[in-house]
Simulated assay, not measured.
Amino acid sequence: MPRSDLAPRVARLNARYRHHSATAVLEHALHDPDAGSLALVSSFGAESVVLLHMVSVARRDTPVIFIDTQMLFAETLVYQQELAERLNLSDLRIIRAWDAELQRHDPDGRLHQTAPDACCALRKTQPLQDALAGFDGWITGRKRYQGNSRADLEFFEVEDATGRIKVNPLAHWAPEDLRSYMEENRLPRHPLVAKGYPSIGCAPCTSRVQNGEDPRSGRWRGQQKTECGIHFVNGKIVRQGENA
């Protein structure tokens, strides 16, 4: 779809579905011409099962992109396989960085220790951008409560740098909404949640969270870094809320 009308289309989508529920936003987005061709990008992390289940109900053949950084917890890989089978996801696409790129930029697997942003770019951002080629937009599980950079999140966003739309059906949900949805639908939790990991990324960069800490405090603990990079291009956030 043409990039020239991206902002007007996103504005129309936000106006059209402003007062809809998360499930309605997702279902309509998957069929609305203004949204175009969409893929769900999922980490199969702590809260991913909610959006995966919604997609499996609304449109099971929606492409689901899972980025295997090759540094994930073993529990995440097992959980991904179990969920894909349980939800009968018919178009799961597992992507990884090219071996040649890993050999060139991170031959000893220690890049995350010295340059975590570069590691995320190598193992997550670039593979994802390659996988999203041909799609008009992608569906994310981001929510407003997850941090300051997401506090004004809308259902639909402009991603100017790539010419794609982002769809955030769970933008307005709170933690209790997620818990209720999982309980009502009897969905399995990621096994690491019960062990103190409310936000789960790569194993070397994820630590347990203590009671009272922010749920994302275990990601890149002790560093200024708060995002993996897939929502940024050239170090800048690649979204622009359209709510006018």
Rank of each mutant, 00 (worst) to 15 (best):
V238W: 02
V41Q: 04
G229P: 03
R144N: 09
S4I: 10
E101L: 06
N148H: 13
L89Y: 03
R142D: 03
S42C: 12
H172V: 06
H28L: 13
Y197L: 07
F44D: 04
H19G: 08
A115W: 05
K124V: 09
G212K: 12
R144P: 08
P169S: 08
E159A: 12
I95P: 08
S42H: 01
V41Y: 02
G218S: 09
H172S: 15
R16V: 03
A133M: 12
V78A: 15
A97D: 04
I67W: 00
G109R: 10
A97M: 03
A131N: 07
R123K: 15
T69A: 05
E227F: 10
C202A: 10
D152S: 15
L170Y: 03
T114V: 15
F155W: 13
M54V: 12
D32K: 06
P191Y: 02
E213M: 07
R86H: 08
E27K: 14
E75V: 04
A151T: 09
G218T: 06
L87N: 04
S48Y: 03
A244D: 05
R164E: 08
P204K: 11
R110E: 09
R16H: 12
T76M: 08
I94P: 02
A161Y: 01
Y197G: 03
Q81F: 02
L178S: 10
C119E: 00
L170G: 05
S48C: 10
R59Y: 08
R60Y: 01
C205D: 09
Q70E: 15
R9K: 11
L38M: 06
V238S: 10
C202I: 06
Q126M: 05
T140A: 14
D68L: 06
V10F: 14
S207M: 08
R9Y: 07
S199F: 00
L72P: 07
R93C: 06
G109D: 13
V64L: 09
A118R: 12
S149M: 11
I65W: 06
G218E: 11
G134S: 12
V78C: 05
L52S: 11
V50Y: 00
S207Y: 02
K236F: 01
A22C: 13
G212S: 08
R60F: 04
E157Q: 14
L178N: 04
D91C: 11
V167L: 06
L89K: 01
D152L: 13
R189I: 00
A22M: 06
E85C: 06
G201W: 04
A174G: 00
M71W: 12
P215N: 01
S37Y: 11
G196K: 03
C205R: 00
R104C: 10
S180Q: 13
E184Q: 15
R96C: 11
H172P: 00
L153H: 02
D68Y: 08
L6W: 02
R59L: 14
N211Q: 12
I200A: 12
I165L: 15
N14C: 14
W173T: 09
L89Q: 11
K236R: 15
G201I: 02
L192D: 02
D160R: 14
G147L: 07
L102D: 01
S42P: 06
E242W: 05
L72I: 06
L92S: 08
G45Y: 03
V10A: 15
R164Y: 00
N243Q: 10
N243A: 11
V41G: 04
D34A: 15
S217L: 09
G163K: 10
Q113G: 02
